[in-house]
């Protein structure tokens, strides 16, 4: 399991980093989105992987920490997901404004490097 999980994080990171370095705003926003999946999974993984151990205290297991998955990374990731949505929205609006002002969708609003595609 762990190896698949780690590889998944790797692939998401690779795709995200590649897109982050692209010159188009839409590519960057997609890259951030993919990278945030990777980072969320990474943080979540810090609590180790456990199947069937949702941190919801039940009467049988009682409050024995060894029987539950780590709740702290989960709480962190939950807030990260919501904040991630908010920042994506902000970034989208900023990129739209930049697109409107500069007439192109280059991350630097730069027409010269617009010619030299990459």
């Amino acid at each position: 399991m762990e190896i698949v999980y780690a590889l998944a994080i790797g692939v998401l990171t690779g795709s995200g980093v590649w897109l982050l370095l692209r010159p188009r705003t839409f590519q960057v926003i997609m890259g951030l989105s993919l990278l945030s999946y990777a980072v969320n999974l990474f943080i979540f993984g810090m609590g180790r992987l456990a199947v069937g151990g949702a941190p919801i205290i039940d009467a049988i297991k009682q409050a024995d920490p060894s029987l539950y998955d780590d709740p702290v990374p989960q709480a962190l990731v939950l807030t990260a997901i919501v904040i991630g949505f908010a920042t994506t929205a902000l970034f989208l609006v900023v990129l739209l404004a930049s697109r409107g002002l500069t007439g192109n969708d280059h991350v630097d609003g730069d027409r010269d490097s617009d010619e030299a595609e990459s």
């Binding site: 999980y5 780690a6 994080i9 370095l21 999974l41 780590d70 709740p71 702290v72």
Partner: peptide, 26 residues
């Protein structure tokens, strides 16, 4: 760079996941 970053984070994740968790606040 993307491949290196991917390999790096995957290795790091795997390394963490295959170790006992430390004593935390959980």
């Amino acid at each position: 760079l993307a491949v290196v970053a991917a390999a790096g984070l995957a290795t790091l994740s795997y390394a963490v996941l295959t170790r006992q968790a430390g004593e935390g606040i959980s």
